[in-house]
Design a protein around this nucleic acid. Structure first.
Length: 426
RNA sequence: CGGAGUGUAGUGUAACGGUAGCAUUAAUGCUUUGGGAGCAUUCGGUCCGGGUUCAAAUCCCGGCACUCCGACCA
């Protein structure tokens, strides 16, 4: 929703601080590392604020998703959090017995409203105003915003919150055929998203329960022990089945054999779902086809939890007291660490490099603080930027800077020009 | 929602019913600077409300909060 405009930052000005010790009462790795690194702040169980570093990661994830959704033909919108009761009565989803995780409130005049946990109703209602003819379809609209769900039990840090960031896209197609075609394309778009944020290898497209309009929905499940879902994966075919739909008939239908499947824990990072005419029927969303006949719009919904995705990335790439963000979602391109001590010359050289890199448009976190090296490195380990640039007396004598690739551990020595060249192209 | 556990400086931890201590952070000064430095001084705390007791961080009751297990997750 917002653009991160500041390309660079001095660590001495960053208000968040790292913590040496793990917070008590946080067992999950993502909560531990993100809180210690100063990415997030816990407001209450399942409710977290994003601090400068955390927001940058979230915005990077958002950028990837936005690019892929736009490439898919999605048009971005921003719907409201306050939801009208009347609208949800039409779809039969206002009752707490039907949807038990509503947050509900009321206006001064007593009118009941709900905080949106999803937006099928709201967007379908909007489409009533704009969809008349077959010429108006298909329409793909998406948004990235906060969703509210009154979870009985929030848990696992930002993996399962009561308030969380979500991208939800809704497709409005003329018929099932047109829908199916888009549905397949959306799978590819989702794959790209998860590849770009670094989860490509560990994420499986997973058959899960569908609804009345299709036998299955598809989940994107990332393998990790801290996941709350159980899935059965076929390594060779790179697909999986959610435990909830696993039976002989399904195996047969998908051409999978029980003995080749491996049971694993996974986190659901995305989900695509064929809605059919469930909501267009309820709200009366129709269009006139070429012959002037009235037809129901055929819908689908496509979600990715951004904050959950961020937590999942930490679960996968975090270690004890250490994080390494995948390049595309790292809060900064590189972490420039000045080991100046009392040496004024090193300070000057570091400042000069910082200016030249930021002038070149490279996102740099500049550790300009007057602290001991050990502490600086420990902070950098926690903050998790994959590339580290060291400026010190040693490197000054070599007339270059030390570059460390934290993934490979590889160290190289480059001058300013070479550094700019290396990071401008990324 | 069912079950279990835990609430002590900003953070992490001690204290038999009897002076709330240690570490770290923060602040000041001096020294130190390629992996969480040293010395000195200073600031800062028992979740909330009741009860028992000469005396409660500690025991009892109620509330609230957090964590974990399970159920739920349209």
């Amino acid at each position: 929703m917002f653009v991160v405009e500041c390309h660079h930052m001095r660590q001495s000005k960053l208000f968040s601080k790292t913590r040496f010790e793990s917070p008590k009462d946080e067992v999950s790795k993502n909560a531990d590392l993100l809180i210690r690194g100063g990415f997030i702040f816990k407001e209450m169980a399942g409710v977290y604020a994003f601090l400068p570093l955390g927001l940058r990661v979230l915005k990077k994830i958002e950028k990837v998703i936005r690019e892929e959704m736009n490439a898919l033909g999605g048009q971005e919108v921003f719907l409201t959090t306050l939801q009208e009761k009347e609208l949800w009565l039409k779809s039969g989803r206002w009752d707490d017995k039907v949807v038990d995780n509503w947050f509900k409130s009321e206006l001064k005049n007593g009118t009941q409203v709900g905080l949106a946990n999803t937006h099928e109703e709201a967007l379908t209602d909007i489409m009533l105003s704009y969809v008349n003819s077959f010429r108006d379809l298909p329409i793909y609209a998406y948004q990235i915003q906060t969703k509210f769900r009154n979870e009985a039990r929030a848990k696992s840090g930002i993996l399962r919150g009561r308030e969380f960031m979500m991208k939800d896209l809704y497709s409005f197609s003329k018929d099932k055929k047109e829908h199916d075609e888009f549905y397949e394309r959306s799978k590819e778009a989702y794959k790209k998203v998860f590849e770009r944020v670094g989860l490509g290898e560990s994420t499986y497209i997973t058959f899960a329960s569908g609804g009345s309009f299709s036998k299955y929905s598809h989940e994107f499940q990332t393998l990790t022990e801290s996941g709350e879902d159980t899935i059965y994966i076929d390594e060779a075919k790179k697909i999986a089945i959610n435990k909830e739909v696993l039976n002989d008939e399904v195996l047969n239908e998908l051409g999978l054999r029980k003995d080749t499947l491996i049971e694993r824990k996974a986190i659901e990072v995305g989900n695509i779902f064929t809605l059919g005419t469930r909501f267009s029927d309820a709200l009366g969303l129709k269009y006139k086809d070429e012959k002037g006949e009235s037809k129901q719009v055929f819908m689908g919904s496509y979600g990715i939890g951004l904050s959950r995705l961020m937590g999942t990335i930490v679960e996968i790439f975090g270690k004890e007291g250490e994080m390494i963000w995948p390049e595309e979602v790292s809060p900064f391109k590189a972490h420039l660490i000045s080991l100046a001590g009392n040496d004024e010359e090193v300070v000057k050289v570091s400042e000069k490099l910082y200016k030249e890199l930021t002038d070149a448009g490279i996102e740099i976190l500049f550790d300009d603080r007057d602290m001991r090296v050990g502490e600086k490195f420990a902070d950098a380990d926690l903050i998790g930027i994959p590339f580290r640039i060291i400026s010190s007396k040693k490197t000054m004598e070599k007339n270059s800077f030390e570059i460390k690739d934290r993934v490979t551990g590889e160290i190289s020595y480059l001058n300013t020009e070479e550094i700019i060249k290396k990071y401008s192209s990324r």
